[in-house]
Design a protein around this nucleic acid. Structure first.
Length: 422
DNA sequence: TCTGGGGTCCTAGGACCC
DNA sequence: TCTGGGGTCCTAGGACCC
């Protein structure tokens, strides 16, 4: 028998984080918007009940917002990241190990806890999270990750589970899978769901019974592994160590369209600075940098252009100034006048741990630069991002994204901690 | 007027080599 | 009619996730 896995998932996570610090948001419909205040990416139960879907553009929702008094917030990732640490801290005593899957979901390795009543164990954990953070959660228990995800979804949807579903028993598993739409299975997206439906496979139970060979033909090894996991055969373990990251990106939509190369470089400079910071905080260097920018793809009647160029970084580097120079080289080659650009970004690939990077023969002493970057990170860490900037980055930042309804940094900025009067 | 920002994995196909 | 047979490496793009 394999070891049990739990998946703990926070309910309406961003909204729950906001509610932890603003009681007036409790019990009313609330939505949290994406970067640039573009579309709804988190919805309270009340907002979902009003028919608001994940990804709905806010400008399609104005009438509903007015009619139902929906509270609308910009996203506050600093707050959500900090709350995540608290949620995980509350879970630590309940598992041997954990793997953070996303900002609101964590897999827990329950090896060593098998002889307990795991449903009671999970309930105690939920209570602890609620007490420490106020955040409501659901827990799915199973022996493969795919089934733990499915258990979690069942716990969320079916009130009979009361927030904790355990799918280790085969009969329970069968019952739940039989009622579970195939398109809701973790790893089955729109394209695969259509193919499966055409074959008459409409539930997780039917997918589980699909011949492995056929699964491979329909959806390559990915779907084959997925079917194995539904059959309770693990094909992915809980990852104790963080796997080596392969690439990273900093991309943003613009608050107002950009039409000049200087403005584009202003934005790319900022993204390259941020990318350098991310690299350094992970102790990595990059071998390749891609700069890209494009016009508004949602408006096909307007002139369209997408520029993208990859350049090699040699030596491999995490030096922001090198990244900025590389971004300029890349952008210059594909720049075109006469278009209104609405989005740009920097992508870094072929990442390697900084102390493992290959040395080049004529590499000059990088110590000075490394110290400069260290000082930059420290200043910006202590006094807030973009306290220290490069001259090319500039101070105007007209392109910067919209975020007009952001809640304060309740937990991470001393000037914004909540005041309590008694 | 107005539509996110990250990531991962897999496959196909071209370039190149012997 | 018929046009080697493998390899490797790289890139682009699809599909999926939150």
């Amino acid at each position: 028998m394999s070891t049990p896995i739990a998946l703990i998932d926070c309910n309406n996570y961003y909204v729950s984080c906001e509610r932890a610090f603003d009681a007036s948001l409790v019990g009313v419909p609330v939505i949290v918007l994406s970067n640039n205040d573009g579309c709804a990416i988190a919805r309270s139960a009340e907002a979902k009940a009003l028919g608001i879907k994940m990804g709905d553009p806010i400008h399609h929702l104005r009438d509903k917002v007015r009619a139902h008094g929906i509270r609308v917030l910009s996203s506050n990732y600093t707050l959500y990241g900090d709350m995540q640490r608290r949620v995980i801290a509350a879970c630590e005593a309940f598992a041997r190990d954990h793997e953070i899957y996303s900002i609101d979901e964590t897999f827990l390795d329950l090896a060593g806890f098998e002889d307990r009543d795991l449903v009671a164990h999970a309930r105690a954990m939920r209570k602890q999270v609620q007490r420490w953070t106020t955040i409501p959660t659901c827990v799915g228990i199973a022996e493969t990750k795919t089934l733990a995800k499915l258990a979690n979804a069942a716990a969320k949807k079916q009130s009979c589970f009361d927030g904790v579903a355990d799918l280790r028993d085969e009969d329970v598993r069968r019952d739940v899978m039989q009622a579970f739409p195939v398109g809701d299975v973790w790893g089955v997206g729109g394209a695969t769901a259509r193919k499966l439906t055409d074959l008459g496979i409409t539930t997780a139970g039917m997918l589980c019974d699909m011949p492995m060979k056929q699964a491979r033909a329909v959806g390559t090894v990915v779907l084959e592994r997925l079917v194995a996991e539904l059959r309770n055969v693990p094909s992915a373990a809980v990852e104790m160590v963080e796997p080596q990251r392969k690439g990273m990106a900093v991309t943003r939509s613009f608050g107002t369209p950009v039409t000049t190369f200087d403005r584009l470089m202003g934005a790319l400079t900022e993204y390259a600075m941020r990318a350098g910071e991310k690299l350094r905080s992970h102790g990595l260097v990059a071998a390749r940098l891609t700069a890209f920018f494009h016009t508004n793809r949602h408006k096909p009647d307007r002139p369209q252009y997408a520029g993208s160029r990859t350049v090699t970084l040699h030596p491999m580097t995490n030096d922001s100034l090198e990244l900025i120079a590389a971004a300029r080289r890349a952008a210059e080659r594909v720049w075109r006048d006469g278009y209104a650009y609405t989005k740009a970004g920097i992508m870094l690939d072929d990442l390697v741990a900084a102390d493992m990077r290959p040395r080049t023969l004529f590499e000059d002493d990088g110590d000075k630069r490394a110290r400069l970057m260290g000082a930059l990170d420290e200043i910006n860490g202590r006094f807030g991002r973009w306290t220290a900037v490069t001259a090319s980055q500039g101070f105007k930042r007209e392109w910067k994204l919209r975020s007009e309804m952001r809640s304060p940094s309740w937990t991470t900025s001393i000037s914004e901690v909540p005041t309590v009067r008694a």
